[in-house]
Simulated assay, not measured.
Amino acid sequence: MTRTGTTAHLTTAAPGRIDWVDYAKGICIIMVVMMHSVLGVENAAGQTGFMHYVVEFARPFRMPDFFLISGLFLAVVIDRDWRTYLDRKVVHFAYFYVLWLTIQFAFKSPSYAADAGWAHVAYMYTLSFIDPFGTLWFIYLLPIFFVVTKLTRKVPAYVIWPIAAALEMAHIFTEWTVIDEFASRFVYFYSGYLFASTIFAFSARAAEHPKLALAGLALWAVINAALVATGLATWPVISLVLGFAGAGAIIVTATLLAKIRWLDGIRFCGEHSIVIYLAFFLPMVVTRIVLLRYAAPYLDIGTIALLVNIAGVIGALVIWRIAIKTGATFLFERPGAFWIVPRKIRPKLQPAA
């Protein structure tokens, strides 16, 4: 039995939420932390473990699903006036990007300075306002997607969607994150916006026919694994198809989990996905350093990577709770001073997620 609510969104604190959406977001954010955790451990250790294959399996659909879910509720707000729209969809994310970019640099700049000097640190920090830094590229790119979609909302979808699909299949690589990731991901965000009603109907059918849904998941898993193993998953057209197929698989999985209310912690992670996204880097890095230094003789690389993944997710939520308890809510909630359009009844803070 899902909770009420049809206008929940990543960027606003809606009074009602939709369970399967939160489960889907939870699965996605855990996979994102997993990728950074596993690759970080493997790079530091110079070897791979069993978690490497999990990350590779998820590569075709990990970010496509996240962006598709992010576009699901855009139709509810896209016709707002530009000032309100920019406040909710651009200024909101800009606040958290600048804040957490500065926090990350505060932790990382000493090592950067030791390697290349403080002038280089200043250059990197400045460049990060043009080319997003590290793990924060997702919340840098989302406002761009919001603006582009609103600017083109009167252009027929049969014009925009094929262009977006062609950009994904072109596999553009310029080494500029905004250009490359826009080309790779916009089709999924736009599809979430464009096909929202179809996606909700698809979820409803999965809930009504769980056995058929499970059979479809099994077939998808085999095909996805085979294409990843053979290297075909990155081919044009196939990459696009796998992105949407994987997104569909996550939606089905999330729907079934919501139906039986299993693994409720995943739903909780989905409710606070942006909180985890912003803060996971610190517990992830600390846990990686400690485990590789002291546990490597006793644990294999795969297990270490899994523990770092878990620590990154839980650690971010712990940081969030500490921030609430200590009054440092500005870390995860946008203060009213940074709003450009106040609500009629406006809370002092707007949550990150």
Rank of each mutant, 00 (worst) to 15 (best):
I103L: 15
F138P: 06
V341H: 10
T4A: 12
I276V: 15
I223C: 08
T102V: 09
V90A: 14
L142I: 12
Y158H: 09
I163C: 12
K348S: 15
L263G: 13
C269H: 04
I103V: 15
K325V: 06
G71Q: 02
L141P: 01
V98G: 07
Y294R: 08
A164N: 09
W20D: 10
K108R: 13
V178K: 04
I139P: 13
G117F: 12
D180S: 11
A14P: 05
F129N: 04
I250F: 02
L257V: 13
H52M: 01
T102F: 15
V147W: 01
G216P: 09
T174P: 03
Y140P: 08
I319S: 03
F189Q: 02
D300A: 10
A165V: 14
T177Y: 05
P162I: 10
R293H: 13
S197L: 06
F105T: 12
L306I: 09
P60F: 03
P297D: 14
S191R: 04
L240W: 05
A245F: 05
F57W: 12
A323I: 08
L227I: 12
V91S: 05
F268P: 07
V228I: 06
T253M: 09
M34V: 11
L278S: 02
D300G: 11
T135D: 03
G265W: 14
A229V: 07
A116Y: 13
V76M: 07
M31H: 05
L212K: 06
S128L: 01
T174Y: 12
I319F: 08
V91K: 08
V32H: 00
A157K: 10
V148T: 14
L349V: 14
P64L: 02
A44C: 00
S273D: 00
I30D: 04
L101E: 08
T255N: 02
H52S: 07
D65I: 10
Y193R: 03
P236W: 08
A14V: 00
Y23D: 05
V187F: 01
C28W: 03
F186D: 00
W235Q: 13
Y112M: 15
I274N: 07
W137H: 10
R267E: 11
F96W: 03
A316N: 04
Y123T: 01
E208H: 06
M34R: 00
L141V: 06
S239M: 07
M35Q: 02
H171I: 11
W339D: 02
E208S: 04
D65K: 09
K150H: 13
